[in-house]
Design a protein around this nucleic acid. Structure first.
Lengths: 161, 161
DNA sequence: AGCGCGAATGTTATATTATTACATCTCGCT
DNA sequence: AGCGAGATGTAATAATATAACATTCGCGCT
């Protein structure tokens, strides 16, 4: 999480331990139901992302992976791609970071409001996906995936300043 | 430019040499009018981006910078930030690449259609900027900048396949 | 239980992308 | 000419991500 400015940033968004446990459980179920394996490195990666208070960098996951020392990068990058494919996490392109999916149905496309001050993110539905597709279709372009990331200031960071 | 598939990709989009010269000229003017200096490394960087047939990576600019050998990274990264601040180029977050701004007024925010096959990009106005801002405002978030990148297949690449 | 297969992981090395830090130079101004 | 701010040069290194190949694991089959 970035910390570009002076004030406190004590507006927490990470799920509570109970909520995390429930999400880990649900993720297990989701994988089993899809015929995929929720292995320990995938679970550990997901856990660290859930614990993070906002988007977290791959190398922060790598560093926190083991109590005694860092994981090897491929371990974590593989888990990240898996979790992304499952829709359990999203990659934030403009931050090179990852955040847990916040919707119940684990859609693979979502928009984000990214606070430039406290680093937290809010997942939003992309308004009018259809308009983007319509515009694209004007030149015959077929859309597979939309990245929408709005940077700015969250309410807490506006009032803190 | 990526080349993920077999077919020809002979659908060129780079500006003609004449058009490039005009754009370089216009960029000079824009800088002078804003009290900025269009120095030789900035100009060379912009030229290489204009010559590219789609988004170009920083290190491709670095490699092509001098006839006899590569530039030093800070030279090019500094020029890239300058050009981006001037609105002459855009950064494509999902590709870690840069593309010349295609609009007359050099707006700092634009959307992109990115072909996953031929690697070319088309700059579009972001549909529904207002909708994003309205949605953001619901939680008190103030938007500074929107990144919109739609990946998919351009018309040429659909028909080629 | 033992076997075989494909998926997942381990391991090492390296590729790619980007920045820091500090010395030096250039240009416009006086 | 001399100053100051902005721009550049230079070396080193940080941060992000993948390639390649060996090994192990889980699971269905016999």
């Amino acid at each position: 999480m970035s910390n570009a400015c002076a004030h406190a940033h004590n507006h927490d968004h990470a799920p509570t331990p109970d909520a995390r446990a429930a999400r880990l459980e649900a993720a297990q179920t989701l994988c089993v139901d899809s015929g995929e394996r929720m292995t320990s490195s995938r679970l550990r990666t997901y856990e660290l992302i859930l614990e993070a208070n906002g988007p977290i960098k791959a190398y922060d996951v790598i560093d926190r992976f083991h109590p005694e020392g860092a994981a090897k990068p491929p371990t974590v990058y593989r888990a990240l791609s898996f979790l992304e494919q499952m829709g359990l996490i999203h990659r934030i392109e403009s931050l090179n970071a990852f955040v847990a999916c916040d919707t119940h149905d684990h859609k693979h496309t979502a928009g984000f409001l990214l606070c430039e001050c406290c680093g937290q993110s809010e997942e939003i539905a992309i308004p009018n996906v259809a308009d983007v597709e319509t515009r694209a279709a004007k030149t015959g372009f077929r859309v597979n995936h939309i990245t929408l990331e709005a940077r700015g200031l969250c309410q807490a960071c506006q009032t803190d300043h």
